[in-house]
Amino acid sequence: MQKRTRVAYLAGIAAALGAAASFGGAQVLTSATVETLSPLVVLAIAQAIALVANWGLFSRDVYLDLKEKRRGYAISLLGGTISTVAFVLVFSALKEVSVVIVAPILAGGVPIFTLLLSFLLLRRAEKITAGTFVGAAFVIGGALLVTTTAGV
């Protein structure tokens, strides 16, 4: 049982880092694409492709959840809404100021605000230790050093 928990923990870390790597690749690809195309058009079409693909790929999960009468659909829909609003806010910010200013704010701001939300709202459900904050500070510090000196 303990071994299974450890495997799940390592799988979770691998998934989170895989997601970050995927988003990092997306950042490189997006910055090249929006040089010639409107960011809002790219966002809308990419979301349309993702909608079709995700429902094709994960329809079995959706079916099983519906069959088991689980809850959480409204929160998922809310998550999708806020995610797109966040992207539009990034594009709006980039119209006003340079990426040199926006990138560090995102690199530092997203983990800080997420950790803050986690601490304030999920303290009882998740294990948050001093080590989590120290580790996060190093991650954010490293990311800020990279974005402020490379202009990513």
Binding site: A8, G12, A16, A19, G24, T114, L115, E126, K127
Partner: peptide, 25 residues
């Protein structure tokens, strides 16, 4: 993958790990 991470290790670890996006880029 992000949702999988959130499900398996929670927001307090997945959130800060998203801070590595510029590193990967």
């Amino acid at each position: 993958l992000m949702i999988m991470g959130l499900r398996l290790i929670g927001l307090s670890l997945t959130g800060p790990m998203m801070g590595t996006i510029p590193i990967w880029a």
